[in-house]
């Protein structure tokens, strides 16, 4: 954990994108090449439990806390409509954390 947190502090935007895609791919049993920024959870056959696991992996990898409510994902303060939206959300969370 400590090691991961140290990494998180130095993640570049490219690292974040690659890591998020890797996480999504591993939870959706797709190859990283098949996951694009435009991919939606539906495209990748990710169900609600899969999303919860992906969010958990993101939190553990980047040492951030993701505001996501599985009851009503659309009203959560975190857009999960596409992989690109998730990447943008993670970048924002990391930037907020660095600013804090």
């Amino acid at each position: 954990m400590t090691e991961q947190s140290a990494d998180a502090a130095t993640f570049t935007d490219e690292d974040i994108e690659a890591k998020v895609i890797e996480i999504v791919a591993s939870h959706s049993l797709n190859d990283s090449q098949e996951v694009t920024l435009a991919s939606t959870p539906q495209d990748l056959s990710i169900d609600s439990l899969g999303l919860v696991e992906i969010i958990f992996s993101i939190e553990e990898t980047f040492d951030v806390s993701v505001p996501y409510n599985a009851n009503d994902p659309s009203s959560s303060d975190f857009d999960i409509s596409t992989v690109g939206a998730v990447v943008a959300g993670v970048k924002r969370l990391i930037a907020n954390q660095r600013a804090a």
Partner: peptide, 20 residues
């Protein structure tokens, strides 16, 4: 908490505003 189905502000069954 890990399942992300818990409400932070109350239990509102059948209400439009319910959130867990």
């Amino acid at each position: 908490e890990g399942l992300r189905v818990m409400s932070r502000d109350g239990c509102r069954p059948f209400s439009k505003t319910r959130n867990g």
